[in-house]
Nucleic acid binder design. Structure first.
Lengths: 343, 343
DNA sequence: CTGTTAGCGCGTTCAT
DNA sequence: ATGAACGCGCTAACAG
């Protein structure tokens, strides 16, 4: 690669002092317009690019966000993550920030590790994506300052982390209401990994809504395993073998739902005539399956944007106590729960 | 955050000199075993983490890889990218490298920009994902050294870039053969954006294979637009309206295929009985649609791994001229092309 | 508005 | 094996 052009080179070329060059480049208003133009010209001629390491070292910040994505071993990030990432990247870019991605297998993240990482200066704030648990810093590991860390998808405010997530209860409630309106009275809930705290919350959201509508023992729960299609398929096969099959199934993720639906249809049952199936997430392909899948669309891109903004608020002290931001999802009724005569 | 612990702090604590500490940490063998242990102990006690910016500045490298993902405006990275990313991250991690992700809208990447970027020291090598075109450095923008840049998914060796991709022709050939064996004699090819060079190659691969089997005017081409499902759907609607419909359709991406299949089935036609459809990519949900989709699985994770390895080879001079590495895909026959009686 | 000076924290010569 | 000193390239505080 071509030798690096430094401020010193520009200084030499222009006869100005290094610090003047530095200012002309980073604070153009603090410099006479001629020097500014001169510097800009020479800089572009020589192909100057500021050395970020040097700047970071000097300024003590890196202007980059660490995105820590918890995922299961060997699994790629899901389409929802991907959407989220889009939001994160876009917002970060608009703020002149960089994004560093790191996939990790742990479900529970320790403050110690993150702090350690931030201390390396590689990033100066972090986004925890789908982290199940947060081990707050012990004693003196942290100063009094709030950590510039935001949790996405999971409510970790109890552990002290500002969090952004989808208002999931609304989503599940919408599904239940929709299914009730279509006459369903027996339900199954296909959940993700059992050790995921949110799964309890989701299950309860469904159960309570049913109770509220006077249906008390109308819900059974099927283990789904990881949030992937094979798990959904297994759950579907188990479902098919059931003696008293509910007529409506709510899956806690679209991936599970698709696997489930596949298994159900393979068995010869019709969707939605024999079994109505709903998912959750809003992955794009749910609109193009046959039948298309009723689901709840998480505002993933927006979650990403907001998370980055919250990072900013944490940084400049606008936020002083852990805050939970819940974004509204969009319920989308589709064929998998709607008898053919309707939409 | 807690004040940063620096080498100076460790020096103070241990009574040793900073440079000794530095050595003890980065080159343990060049130091007496007692001091090594002492340093390690104190370091972990104080929670030392080396400042990467400082190290980078001093060493002149950053140990990070820039992943530049070309995508369409507002679109999240596709599941294939995601798999790729997994491979990249895993391999990078095993080599102690970081990964910096950047989504970009340009289809054609200019060496000038990348070089500029690398000069900032944020990254010292780059992976171009699905970059359509590469504008090599003009004249003196680069030294004689080979740029530490690898193209993924696209063959950019002609422009001077070492590239890793799927052996696509094999994949399309496999599809054609499979369909021919099932008795199909009229084909449609649904392509992606017209300005994508590979689309021509893919189309030709199909056409030639057909010719080779004695079928010369058996192929029509349908515009697909971007590689997404809505585009596939439109193509499918156009297809349905055709007078002489081919019985077999080859889509150049799974997303297109799913949109296409959806449109076809909506029209009342049956898949595969009336129309056989095949995709390309190997997205995970293709196994769970109804009917499941015949496709060609790209070795995406492996592509990522190899790309990172190639970066290493470029760096240490093992590779001196642009090289093309083509990985074999896996053809996967599924229901969308197989009459029910069969698998 | 511009030049001078002093670090940022680490790696790496040199000596010792 | 260890210590002293310098430099990586840039920013920031202080003068002028």
């Amino acid at each position: 690669m071509a030798k690096r052009v430094t401020l010193a080179d520009l200084a030499e070329q222009t006869g100005l002092n290094i610090s003047t060059i530095s200012r002309a480049l980073s604070r153009p208003d603090r410099v006479s317009s001629e020097t500014r133009r001169l510097v800009e010209k020479v800089a572009s001629q020589l192909g100057y690019a500021t050395n970020i390491a040097a700047r970071n070292l000097s300024r003590g910040t890196s202007d980059t966000i660490l995105v820590l994505a918890s995922s299961f071993k060997g699994q790629a990030i899901s389409p929802v993550f991907t959407q989220l990432l889009l939001g994160v990247c876009e917002e970060a870019k608009s703020q002149g920030l960089n994004v560093m991605l790191q996939q990790c297998l742990e479900q529970t993240i320790s403050a110690r590790d993150i702090i350690r990482y931030l201390q390396t200066g590689v990033a100066d704030s972090a986004l925890l994506v789908a982290a199940e648990q947060w081990l707050p810093p012990t004693d003196s590991e942290t100063g009094e300052k709030i950590l510039p860390i935001v949790s996405i998808f999971k409510d970790l405010t109890a552990a002290g982390l500002t969090s952004v997530m989808t208002q999931e209860t609304d989503g599940y409630t919408a599904i239940v209401d929709h299914l009730l309106a279509r006459g369903h009275r027996q339900f199954a809930f296909v959940s993700g990994p059992e050790d995921i705290m949110h799964e309890q919350i989701r299950y309860r959201a469904v159960k309570q809504r049913l109770s509220a509508q006077g249906l008390d023992n109308a819900l059974i729960r099927l283990k789904g395993g990881p949030f992937d299609m094979p798990s959904g398929q297994k759950a579907g096969q188990a479902f098919v073998a059931l003696e008293n099959r509910p007529s409506a199934v709510i899956c806690c993720s679209d991936a599970l739902a698709l696997g489930f639906m596949h298994a159900v249809m393979e068995s010869g049952l019709r969707v939605p005539q024999d079994v109505a199936i709903a998912g959750f997430d809003g992955m794009d392909y749910t609109a193009f399956t046959t039948p298309s899948l009723t689901t709840v669309i998480q505002p993933a891109v927006e979650l990403g944007r907001v998370a980055v903004q919250l990072l900013g608020d944490l940084h400049n002290g606008k936020i002083t106590v852990p805050r939970l931001v819940a974004l509204a999802p969009t319920f989308m009724a589709r064929q998998s729960t709607c008898p053919p005569c309707q939409d």
